[in-house]
């Protein structure tokens, strides 16, 4: 294996770990509200701009940016759930499918977030966040690994692990899972399902916002950087869309594959790779590459 190929794969793993995190954010919302949050990409963008604001105008240390962004984007997600999702679900009868109204509302949210960011003064020029860590690249034989890439992978994996522990080991996390899997039974066992849904939207916002800080140094910050959601959707589709481990694998797969496709077929094909993958996977294996047989929902 040549060294360029190795570099490409390593860089793909770094971006892939962020895609995995965004895909998780989309999938947990899908599991709780059965709708795709098309505003996830804009929450990533807002997270990056919150980070930029604190780096430019204050002297907050870098590590403190993460909790600030996390709180900010958690609030966006939770507030959106209260303001838009609750009224939509409340007026729906049990038989109706709230999917289309919720998806439309998330389109509205994405416009609002983009609109706000376009107005603030930081968008006149394309900026990037400073790298997460500095220092000479690490050498393994002929292959160089950028410390910043390594930091992205480590932080994303830590976040993913953290969420995994949260969802499987803590009472709140298990209550969240229960209310996604079977809202009725969860309600009967005393779990406030409506509040759980708000927390899920908040956590989804938090995940996406953190991703903004992680990709900020690699991508330029523009109000349109929310387009990254398409890659995350591809990751989620590869993973089977309601499968959390699947979308993590999907994230890494698409990160590496996108770089390889760009390397083999030219850089302009990078942009179209996720769309082709979504279509191919949906047509050939709608349950995802890692999903089991399709679950038929009972009436």
């Amino acid at each position: 294996m040549s060294t360029t190929l190795a570099l490409i794969i390593i860089s793909g793993i770094a971006t892939g770990s962020v895609y995995a995190l965004i895909a998780l954010s989309i999938v947990i919302v899908y599991k709780s509200s059965e709708a795709v949050n098309f505003a996830a990409g804009e929450v990533v963008m807002v997270g990056a701009y919150i980070a930029l604001f604190f780096i430019v105008s204050t002297s907050v240390p870098y590590w403190l940016i993460f909790p600030i962004v996390a709180i900010g984007t958690f609030a966006i997600g939770a507030a959106f759930e209260r303001a838009a999702i609750v009224p939509i679900i409340r007026r729906m009868s049990a038989r109706e499918n709230p999917l289309i109204p919720i998806v439309i509302a998330t389109f509205g949210l994405s416009l609002m977030l983009k609109g706000i960011v376009r107005v603030i003064p930081y968008t006149e020029q394309v900026r990037s966040l400073p790298p997460l860590v500095r220092g000479a690249p690490i050498r393994i034989g002929d292959v160089m690994i950028l410390r910043a890439d390594l930091a992205i992978v480590v932080i994303s994996v830590l976040f993913i692990l953290g969420f995994w522990i949260f969802f499987t080991r803590t009472l709140l996390g298990r209550a969240l899972q229960a209310s996604s899997q079977n809202p009725l039974c969860a309600q009967l066992s005393g779990i406030p399902v409506a509040r759980m849904r708000m927390i899920v939207w908040g956590i989804a916002g938090l995940m996406a916002g953190v991703c903004g800080v992680l990709v900020g140094p690699k991508l330029g910050l523009t109000p349109d950087m929310g387009g990254v959601i398409m890659v995350a959707l591809a990751a989620a589709v590869i993973g089977g869309f309601s499968n959390l481990p699947g979308s993590i694998v999907g994230g890494f797969t698409i990160g590496v594959l996108q770089n390889l496709i760009g390397y083999w077929f030219g850089s302009e094909t990078i942009a179209v790779a996720p769309f082709i993958m979504i279509m191919v996977v949906l047509v050939l294996r709608p349950q995802g590459l890692f999903g089991g047989p399709v679950h038929v929902k009972k009436v």
């Binding site: 303001a83 838009a84 009224p87 939509i88 007026r91 109204p101 439309i104 509302a105 389109f107 509205g108 949210l109 994405s110 416009l111 609002m112 977030l113 983009k114 609109g115 706000i116 376009r118 107005v119």
Partner: peptide
């Protein structure tokens, strides 16, 4: 006028929530 995009988003969210 710079707020145009925001206004559009707001219109979309408000209409889908308040007047289905």
């Amino acid at each position: 006028i710079v707020w145009q995009e925001f206004v559009y988003g707001l219109i979309l969210v408000l209409s889908i929530t308040l007047m289905p």
